[in-house]
Computed example of a mutant assay.
Amino acid sequence: MTAPDQDRQGLVDELVGVAVPGYAILVVQLNNVVATQLGVTDTDVQCLHALDRYGPMTPGALAKRVNLTTGSATRMIDRLVAAGCVRRMPDPDDRRKVVVEPTQEGLDRVRDAYAGLVERTRDDLGDFTDEELRAVLRFVRTAEHSTAAEIHRLQSGTGNQ
């Protein structure tokens, strides 16, 4: 292996073996702190993020989105309703069903909880060139896709290949 190849391999190893796992652990810890402050669970915070990103959805769709059984999702929705973060509304396409939608209060509380990190991240990215920002964004989107694929692979029973 040539020196440039070794340098590249070292960078990749540090990124996937140290930096990304370390960042992921801190994000999990931050989500736990936010959930505690909101009086809900970590998964409940994921639910609010999903509703904010994808809009109102049925309890079944929400359960799939945050990797819960429908029974667990019902309990999660009950907690979030009690916390004032979501509400159940009639499904506009089928009035026999309900959709879960975030309340403005719930979205505001989550956004407020993450506002410090958002501001710090904007500051951190301030010195990046446009090219570097595009590379970071490309990496995050690719990693998001790969992570979703790995979740699917592990859940489908083909986990140890």
Rank of each mutant, 00 (worst) to 15 (best):
M1S: 12
T2H: 07
T2V: 06
P4H: 00
Q6N: 03
Q6W: 06
D7R: 07
D7N: 02
L11W: 03
V12Y: 12
D13G: 13
L15C: 05
V18M: 09
V18E: 15
V20F: 10
V20S: 00
P21C: 00
G22K: 04
A24C: 07
A24H: 02
I25C: 11
L26F: 13
L26N: 09
V27Q: 10
Q29M: 11
L30K: 11
N31W: 04
N31G: 08
N32F: 01
V33H: 08
V34T: 04
V34W: 03
A35I: 04
Q37I: 04
L38M: 15
L38G: 02
G39V: 04
G39F: 06
G39I: 05
G39Y: 01
G39M: 07
V40A: 14
T41P: 02
T41A: 14
T41W: 05
T41F: 06
T43R: 14
D44Q: 14
V45I: 11
Q46I: 02
Q46N: 12
Q46M: 06
Q46R: 14
C47Y: 01
H49Y: 12
A50M: 07
R53Y: 08
R53I: 07
R53S: 13
R53E: 15
Y54E: 13
G55M: 07
G55W: 05
A61F: 06
A61N: 15
R65C: 03
N67V: 04
S72E: 14
S72A: 15
A73Y: 11
M76V: 13
I77K: 13
D78I: 06
R79A: 11
R79N: 15
L80T: 10
V81I: 15
A82F: 00
A82T: 13
A83W: 05
G84D: 06
G84H: 09
V86G: 05
R87H: 12
M89D: 12
P90A: 08
D91F: 14
P92D: 15
K97L: 09
V99R: 11
V99P: 09
V100N: 00
V100M: 00
P102M: 06
P102V: 13
T103N: 00
E105T: 10
G106Y: 02
L107N: 11
L107C: 10
L107I: 10
R109W: 04
V110M: 01
V110L: 15
D112M: 03
A113Q: 07
A113H: 02
Y114E: 09
A115V: 11
A115Q: 04
G116D: 02
V118F: 08
V118Y: 14
T121H: 04
T121C: 07
R122W: 07
D124G: 03
D124R: 03
L125Y: 08
L125G: 10
D127P: 00
F128A: 07
E131C: 01
A135P: 05
V136R: 02
V136D: 01
F139K: 01
V140Y: 06
R141W: 09
R141P: 02
E144P: 00
H145N: 09
H145V: 14
H145Q: 09
H145A: 15
A148Y: 03
A149R: 12
E150S: 14
R153L: 13
L154Q: 13
Q155W: 10
G157A: 08
G157V: 01
G157F: 12
T158F: 14
T158E: 15
